[in-house]
Amino acid sequence: MSVYLLRRLIQAVGVVAAMSIIVFIGVFAIGDPVEILISPDADQIERERAIRALGLDLPLWQQYLVFLGKALQGDLGRSFVFNEPALQLILQRMPATLELAIAATVAAILIGLPLGLYAGLRPNSLGAKTIMAGSILGFSLPTFWVGLMLIMVFAVQLGWLPSTGRGETVEVLGLRWSFLTLDGLAHLVMPAINLALFKISLVIRLTRAGVRETMLMDYVKFARAKGLTPFRVTFVHVFKNILIPVVTVTGLEFGSTIAFSVVTESIFAWPGMGKLIIDSINVLDRPVIVAYLMIIVLMFITINLVVDLTYSVLDPRVRLEGK
């Protein structure tokens, strides 16, 4: 087990290194941060000063070595735009995004799992068909469009919910959280739903597909034949079996929720990492992009590790490599 974990750790380092090289080359190819950031009034002298100030006067490979040297000492560089340590900037914004992603994932499971279960157990009922048709809506319309519609209806027309931004926050463990206040929750509802829509559909569909298959499995038939209650059959035998794809996908989706909260955050002016990264990409703020991706890569690696470990717990047929 520990050998397995160690090997995963070494691989993680390789992935992070590969990622940073791709970002350096990619950002270099996309454009020139100085051209983007500099005032149109600036003259040639000022331009050259700015290029030196941001360390962009060196050849790209030297810039990378400088970055590597500092990164090994725990310094991921300072944002070109904010002149603050990139890591600190991201960590400041992280609670907002985590809060949003967790809320969306919880909503997806709480709504998606029961609906999917129902649709799988009674596949031919009218309810099931409505659920399945409705779930298509969840992923066929672009997020930005649905987001604006939510704002139009619930904030502008009905006035039930605040339109944008993060509500009142409470400081817990040195970080600001908004889900502990009523105002904060009110601000959280719409962006969370917006972000959850796709996931709800996904969970419904995966659960339904899993349930339909599992119900026909021999061991379920056997359990039923043995005279176990339908409740026990459903929630012990069937449920355990369908959790594998649901766990995989929800795990994956949690990562991508964080990574792709970009659009939702910019529509709802939610001050999280997603908004930071899209702003940073727009001005090619390389230190922030690298630091952000580093965090996301590590997060994905961790999630995948957890998912793999969960597999082996949930399903003894899966054995981990490197035992």
Partner: peptide, 24 residues
Amino acid sequence: SAIMRLVDLQLSFPAILVALMILA
């Protein structure tokens, strides 16, 4: 391991950054 780490790497790149790089 190789394929799955590639997956990890890929999943962490935001679509917008990938699109920008390909555009560039």
